[in-house]
Amino acid sequence: MTGDATASARATSQYATTTGNLTARIALHAYGTNPQSWFAWLGERLPLARDVLEVGAGTGELWHRIGPRRRLTLTDFSPAMCARLREVPGARVLRCDATYLPFRAGTVDAVIANSMLYHLDDPDAALREFARVLRPGGRLAVAVNGRDHMAELNTLGPVIGCPDLAVRFHHRNDVTAEATPARVAAHFTDVTVERYPDELVVPAAEPILAYIVSMIGPLTVAEESAARAAIEARIDAEGAFRVRKHTVLISATRGSR
């Protein structure tokens, strides 16, 4: 998959038939320095009353961490992800496109989109759809990353001869912490932004290598050796491979019109 692929094409190649890539990425975040995990932090801030819909729910890790909820619906475009989502107790699981949700207008109390808008070719169409299915006064929660999120990993691109590594790590369509609040405000009111404070401190090369492989596929022996050497040199110099994170939660309300 080249850097020129569309957002949806990359998502299909990454997620349609496997949950392994997402699992590898979640694993790297276990090295965060914030004592409160992302899922616990997010769970405290989500609108979880009554009918809750998570779009692009992936492996359902959020609900395994914070516990299932009554009247919870989980959707994803990927058959592999939907199979995993069916392991969430009590959840209704639907396979569908985020821009064409199979719900009547005004029938959902809360919509959650956790780190998924950047997988879409038309994220604004999804935001319009979220607004359509929400009841007046319903709440939206969107998590996105900043343009500088995990930028330290981009430096490994030249090491392994992958000049588009930064493209793969950065989000297309400018679905970022910097640009997305304004996009949300075009469809919702009471928009707020809160940053999750965290940094990864990774003591070994393997989790970082697994993350890179999850993004670009298997490395050759030479590529892996070069990447490992670069990572271990950083660890030797600094005691760990440090990766800065920039993730925000954007919350908003569906207006009365």
Rank of each mutant, 00 (worst) to 15 (best):
V93N: 13
V144Q: 00
P181Y: 03
M81C: 12
L134T: 01
F169D: 02
S78A: 15
F188C: 02
H170C: 12
P197Q: 11
D190R: 08
A179G: 00
A182G: 10
R195A: 15
A125D: 04
G146F: 05
A204G: 04
G90M: 12
L156G: 02
G137F: 10
F103P: 06
R139Y: 05
P163K: 05
A113F: 03
R172V: 12
I66M: 09
P79F: 13
D148G: 12
A205R: 08
R92T: 15
P89F: 08
R84L: 03
R92I: 09
R70I: 01
R195T: 13
Y196R: 00
V133F: 03
A186F: 08
T180R: 00
I112D: 06
E194A: 15
I160M: 15
F169H: 02
T99V: 06
E152V: 13
R139F: 06
A204I: 08
V88C: 07
H149S: 04
P89S: 11
A105M: 03
I160V: 15
A91F: 04
D121W: 01
N173H: 15
A182L: 11
L127V: 13
Y118P: 00
L165A: 09
P89E: 14
V175D: 01
Y100T: 14
N154W: 13
R71E: 15
T176F: 07
F103N: 03
G67K: 09
L74N: 07
A204Y: 01
A143P: 00
I112G: 01
E152Y: 07
I160K: 00
A113S: 08
V193R: 07
A205N: 04
T176Y: 01
G67C: 09
S78E: 10
F169K: 00
V144P: 00
T155R: 15
P163Q: 01
T155V: 13
L117D: 02
P136N: 13
C96Q: 07
A80M: 08
P181I: 08
T99M: 06
C162P: 00
A177V: 08
F77K: 03
P123K: 03
R95S: 09
L101P: 01
L200C: 02
L85C: 11
A83Y: 07
A83D: 11
H64G: 09
A131F: 05
G157L: 09
G90C: 12
V93R: 08
D97R: 13
L94V: 15
A204W: 04
R104H: 03
T176I: 07
P181V: 10
D76Q: 05
H187W: 14
R147M: 10
N145L: 06
H171V: 11
D97W: 03
V175E: 02
T155F: 11
